[in-house]
Amino acid sequence: MATNMDKDDAGTPAAAGGFAGLAQEMAAKSALVRKDNGHIDLLAAAGGVRGIAESVLPGLVFLVIFTVSRNLNWSLLASVAVALVFLVMRLVQRTPLTQALAGIAGVALSAVLAMTTGKAENYYLVGFLTNAGYIAAMVVSIAVRWPVLGLLFGYARNEGVRWRAKPERLRAYRVATWIIVAVMAARLAVQLPLYFTNNVDALGAMRLIMGVPLYALGLWVAWLLSRPVATEG
Rank of each mutant, 00 (worst) to 15 (best):
A216N: 07
A14S: 13
N199V: 01
R50Q: 10
V49Y: 13
N73R: 09
A143K: 09
A83N: 02
L97A: 15
L101P: 11
S69F: 05
V49H: 10
W146N: 05
D9I: 11
W74R: 00
V85L: 12
Q24A: 13
E168V: 06
G106N: 09
V148S: 02
L91S: 09
Y195R: 03
A46M: 14
A111L: 00
R94G: 10
L125G: 09
G127E: 03
D36Q: 10
G127A: 14
L152W: 00
W74G: 00
A102N: 14
Y173D: 00
I52D: 12
V229M: 11
L224A: 05
W146Y: 09
I40F: 10
L170Y: 04
Y124V: 00
A27S: 12
L152F: 03
L188I: 15
P167A: 12
R207P: 00
N71A: 06
H39N: 13
V229S: 13
P228T: 11
L152R: 01
D201Y: 10
I142A: 12
V181Q: 08
F86S: 03
V82N: 04
L188Y: 07
D6G: 02
F86I: 04
V144D: 07
Q93Y: 13
L42F: 06
V126K: 04
G17N: 12
P193K: 13
V107K: 09
H39E: 12
R164F: 10
A132T: 13
N158Y: 04
G127N: 07
A186Q: 08
A132L: 14
Q93V: 07
V144F: 13
L219E: 00
L149S: 05
G51Q: 03
V61M: 04
V112Y: 15
P228Q: 06
D9M: 08
G59P: 12
L203S: 07
L91K: 13
I65C: 11
L101C: 14
A100D: 12
A23G: 15
V82M: 08
P167K: 09
A111T: 11
F128W: 05
L57C: 02
P13H: 05
A108T: 15
D201K: 09
A143V: 13
A216G: 04
V33W: 02
A14N: 10
T197R: 14
A27R: 04
A156F: 06
Y123I: 03
L225N: 02
R207W: 10
N158G: 07
L60R: 05
S69R: 01
S30Q: 04
L217R: 00
A46H: 02
A143H: 06
G18W: 14
R171W: 06
L84S: 11
T12C: 08
A114C: 04
V139T: 06
A189L: 15
L203N: 09
G233H: 01
A105G: 14
P167N: 04
A31P: 12
A202C: 04
G106T: 14
A176N: 08
R70I: 01
V82K: 05
W178H: 01
A216M: 15
R174E: 12
S55K: 11
A105N: 04
E159H: 05
T177A: 01
T3N: 11
M138F: 14
L97R: 06
